[in-house]
């Protein structure tokens, strides 16, 4: 019943989507993570209004699906606000927003996990608040959050397939088109899944290794 030989010749067409998939993933991860740090810091700081805005941002993007953000930004924004963005920007932006919410929570957990004595010691030494954060707390936070960040990257790579709905020719979109052209959706989508597996598996292994390492090697005082 399955006839992979009917679609295997088109496999390279799917592979051509890899750069775009990786590009979307990488761009969204970098933008999202860079944005996440100030969001997390502000959220912890309990500054009136600003901290609430940060919290609202986090909760909104953690509780609503990125597919909705993509569709909304791509189809509604031009009508409502006369803002027309290209598909790559829309997907990158939408995924970066949810990544920023997720990573902000990861950063927050990592910052709060650094013992209070580290803040105390650096404060008595005269370091300003941002210096304590930058030179003492964040380097320790980074080691703690490597594994969960890696997990975020894995789910982001899979979520980049949402770009298919607005016709960005990444892996999933190419799979859909190929499936309708060949009338072999099961075979094609199996190949698509295989490509995602090959891309994410090393990251999953890396995440597990990081988790093992951080639970073993790194202890503060």
């Amino acid at each position: 019943m399955f006839r992979f030989e009917a679609v295997i010749g088109d496999f390279p067409v799917l592979l051509l989507g890899i750069p775009l998939t990786l590009g979307l993933t990488f761009a969204a991860f970098v933008v999202g993570t860079v944005a996440a740090l100030p969001i997390a810091v502000v959220r912890i700081a309990r500054i009136p209004v600003v901290s609430q805005v940060a919290l609202a941002w986090i909760e909104f993007f953690r509780t609503t699906p990125p597919l909705m953000h993509i569709v909304w930004a791509y189809y509604a924004l031009p009508v409502v606000a006369d803002i027309k963005l290209d598909a790559f920007t829309v997907v990158t932006g939408a995924l970066a927003c949810s990544t920023s919410a997720q990573m902000a929570e990861i950063f927050r957990g990592g910052i709060l996990a650094v013992p209070r004595g580290q803040w105390d010691a650096s404060q008595v030494l005269g370091l300003a608040h941002w210096q304590r954060l930058w030179w003492v707390v964040l380097p320790q936070t980074l080691r703690l959050i490597l594994a969960p960040s890696c997990n975020t990257l894995v789910s982001l790579l899979k979520q980049s397939s949402l770009a298919a709905v607005i016709a960005l020719p990444e892996i999933m979109n190419r799979g859909w088109i190929l499936a309708s052209e060949t009338f072999r959706p099961i075979e094609v989508l199996t190949l698509v899944a295989f490509i995602y597996f090959v891309l994410t598996w090393p990251l999953v292994l890396l995440s597990a290794a990081l988790e093992r390492q951080s639970s073993l090697a790194f202890r503060s005082d």
Partner: peptide, 11 residues
């Protein structure tokens, strides 16, 4: 100040 738990910067 010196603390009971040292509080050296481990990194």
């Amino acid at each position: 100040m010196v603390f009971q738990s040292f509080n050296l910067f481990p990194h």
